[in-house]
Structure formats: C-alpha cells, structure tokens
Amino acid sequence: MTQTLNLTINGTTQTIALDDPRATLLDVLRERLGLTGTKKGCDRGQCGACTVLIDGRRMNACLALALSHDGAAVTTIEGLAEGDRLHPVQDAFLRHDGFQCGYCTPGQIMSAVALIAEAEAGLDPERVREGMSGNLCRCAAYAGITEAVLDATRTMTREDAA
C-alpha cells in the first residue's frame, strides 16, 4: 500500500509515494531519493552519523519514521553549501581537520550547525564537547571537531553582527 508523504528537503517540496510504511527518514533520503550524504552508522540512534535538521532541530534520521514527519522541512548535508561556497561549519571542519575517514562527518557537521543555532554552548569548549557527544567519531577527530565548532561559532557570530 503506497502512502503519500510531503517533505521539503533542502528547500524543495516533494511529494513522495512511499512504498513501505516502515521506511525511516534515513532510508527515504538514502535509498529512495539518492541523498546519500546522510550516513547510516548504527541505525539505532547511538552514533549520530544520520543527523539531519528536521524543522530546524537536529535529530537522528534513523529513528524518525518517515510517515510521522509528513510536512516537515528537512535539511541534509547536501543543503548546506551554496554552490561552491562552503557553509562556515564545513569550511571550519576542513581547515581544522575535524575528520579523518569522513563517514561521521555529515552528521557531525549537521549537529554542529544546530549546536551553533541553539546558542547554548557559545565559545565554552566544555559545552561544545558535551553538545557534540551525540556524534561518535571512531577515527577520534574530536580535538579538530571541537576546534572547528568553536571557530565556526566565532565566524558566524561575526557574520551575524555584520
């Protein structure tokens, strides 16, 4: 039985004929829509590799039943850069070597974008580390990740002020 699902993904509204009610948002993005930037690491909300923004909030796409998010606005890693211009968080991850194998990176970056928007961690490294702890990095690029988030926070604060 096909059910209809409306999602606004990276600014574009799509009507999706969903072939299976069991599909998670993660599997819809990856397997149905070809948006494979969002990664599956554990499929159980335990690693953060699938982090996307749903209506502006970071969530694990693997534990989001797609049908339950009918009408939602979803931002994925594919929706961050403007053309060739990287988002400040992407740029900071690149400069601070906030990744190695790159597999957790889209999730880290989406989580960091949300962390900065939440405006609760600010420039306190302790709060940044805590706030990024839902994103495991097995290569353990944590030092670079924390530096990148702090750097991007500074950049984006400046941009906001300007």
């Binding site: 850069a81 990287l86 992407q90 991850f93 690149l94 790159g102 970056i109």
Partner: peptide, 10 residues
C-alpha cells in the same frame, strides 16, 4: 585534505 571538500559536503 584533498578529499576534504567531498567529505564535508557529503
């Protein structure tokens, strides 16, 4: 990293 842009953009 030369592959960095690919990795940070997914």
């Amino acid at each position: 990293r030369r592959d960095g842009v690919l990795k940070v953009t997914g």
